[in-house]
Amino acid sequence: MAEPILSVRGLETYFRPDEGIVRAVDGASFDLYPGRTLGIVGESGCGKSVTARSILRIVERPGKVERGEVLLRRSDGRVVDLVTIDAQGAGMRDIRGGEIGYVFQEPMSSLSSFHTIGNQVIEAIRLHRAVSAKDARARAIELLQLVGIPRPEQRIDSYSFELSGGLRQRVMIALALAAEPRILIADEPTTALDVTTQAQILELIRKIQAERNLAVILITHDMGVIAEMADAVSVMYLGKVVESGPVDTIFHAPRHPYTQALLRSIPSVLAEPRSRLATIAGGIQHPYARPPGCPFHPRCQSFMPGVCDRNAPPVTKLDAEHEVRCFLYGAPARSAT
């Protein structure tokens, strides 16, 4: 396979509020390839959004990227480690938007209601490309057309609050694509939308990806969306990537007990009416009180006392692309106490 455009290695992002420490992301690693979609899936508190924010270096205080590498291969072939760049500096600002576009869940709060959507798109274009105001406007109209906004010549002068949720999310995508980035990070891009609108937005992302050979990181809690969109999947639980692999493997040959249990517990339109669901016992622990050892062990069917609650399981490579973090597949560390 080609060179990855983005490689995350051992990323650790911690929050240190007054009350203690939250290991929001605790050793995440993955590769992203041009034209491919990496799905990051997990439930609340798993650290999927913080992972995206860490890549973009926009983690809010008191959070901080503590360790790890985020290697971005720039268009000229140079590889830069985003963790070592000044988060507020010009270099990072150039990468945000320029190399990596991003779309968040809440299209209402991500758009300014004081500027027309056109001006926001134009600003995003001119931030990264030296073009005249007139050319920028023409490009903005093109972009709005591309993301499927009807009558873009007129809509360009409307304000975000005049648009429906679906149209606002389209504007967000237009903004993210304004400087022709090669990577798109979409954090729960359809969660706030209705199901038919969700289908439209997913379709749009797929279309643009094919046209531009975009590398996409899609972050969601919805296994259905992942199955629909992703090529590769990383499953996260309380800060750890517990399993990663090609989408078909994750859905049809999952190895980690969490992935297996999660897949069994999702309601599906394919199920028999009124059929009981398999459940995962208990609830997700608060990230403040993450269990020691493997964070999933209190809810795990295959829990091995004295092993899983003592040490963090190592990453086991099951084949070239399939990795799992579980003692069922890798020997416990010998330094066990």
């Binding site: 038919t196 379709e203 259905g224 992703a230 599906s268 394919l270």
Partner: peptide, 25 residues
């Protein structure tokens, strides 16, 4: 029909051709 078709199915082998509705509610 469109509503059912729009629901993402948690199985990558079932990526069916969706009926994507035009416009908004």
């Amino acid at each position: 029909e469109a509503l059912l078709s729009a629901v993402p199915v948690p199985d990558p082998r079932q990526r069916a051709k969706r009926i994507v509705l035009e416009g908004e509610v």
